[in-house]
Design a protein around this nucleic acid. Structure first.
Lengths: 166, 166
DNA sequence: ACTTTATGTCAGTGTTGTTGACTTTCCAAG
DNA sequence: CTTGGAAAGTCAACAACACTGACATAAAGT
């Protein structure tokens, strides 16, 4: 199972248990770095990671409905509602009743919300940019390929839904 | 800032804000997949992600002290202690008083603890193996490079401390 | 009219993080 | 040898954020 046989001439050394464990720990440690900078900013403002996620996806797709956001975030509506409630009360997010379907609430960032979004994504992009620059374009391509393969199919759908701009 | 200039003949298109955002979301969605399988198993046993992390690192380095584990996990000792307490009480982890320094506790997995460790890491490796296989060895190398560059220096130290076996 | 969908709320619970206060143990300076 | 501080670990209380379950309201859809 953890052998290093070959197949079709291609070595499979990269599939050993040791290599996989190394990848697992890389995910763990890197994710901590990934969230560290936004966490500091959020803390200053009295918000948590859940607020960041909501803000991020509302910014990505302004006007999305609560249900859509729910399926992207993969949490319960009760959990999301708590977060959304504070963001709306604090004037960072606006909830507009749908014109065609009046049940639906379409979410938008206010100017204040957009400001926080920029602060958060700026910090996170800075970290990502450093990592990308260090690793180089080819490594980045591999990085994205492996992560995409790691996703659950439904999450991959949400991921691929983004325009790629490449 | 989001331009696509060139430098030394190498294109920097991969550093655009769009590309960075795509990377950020890849991390978010992939991490969910990464933890999904162990989470299901942990739930069956009545444990959480924190228990998994403790078990993982105790297995990686049997006999490590609480303080060492603390610095690897990056949480407070009080938080770790609660998790460790249940694992010890349930007979998955053994805490041995140090011989030279009697303040220190050295942590080991029991047979039961090792069984759960195998169950958890087996599931997680299976996911990782699938992703690795899909993406290929070159992508895996890039994946690891970018993640390593993304870590905080102290976390990178812990990461690199592992034998690589490549 | 009846059912389903979209949203929101209330109450209760569990995991995991935090701070603060405390005990035990070790070591080193007087 | 004692005393005082540092290190290791524990206990208690609290906060964030996830969960389930029950229920309410309004708007679509059939």
């Amino acid at each position: 199972m953890a052998d290093s046989s070959t197949q079709g001439g291609e070595t499979l050394l990269f599939l050993t248990d040791e290599q996989l464990r190394k990848g697992i720990e890389a995910m763990f440690f890197a994710y901590r770095g990934f969230t560290a900078d936004p966490d500091r900013i959020l803390d200053k403002h009295g918000y948590g990671r859940a607020h960041h996620r909501a803000i991020h996806f509302i910014n990505r797709e302004p006007g999305l409905t609560v249900t859509t956001l729910l399926s992207v975030l993969g949490v319960t509506k009760q959990s999301l509602n708590r977060v959304l409630r504070t963001l709306i009360d604090d004037g960072l997010v606006e909830s507009r009743v749908g014109r065609k379907d009046k049940r639906a609430r379409h979410l938008h960032l206010t100017a204040t919300g957009e400001a926080l979004e920029r602060e958060l994504s700026g910090a996170q992009r800075e970290r990502m940019r450093g990592a990308y620059r260090t690793a180089g374009p080819q490594a980045v391509a591999g990085f994205r390929q492996v992560l995409e393969a790691m996703m659950d199919p439904e999450m991959r759908r949400h991921y691929q839904m983004l325009k790629d701009d490449s």
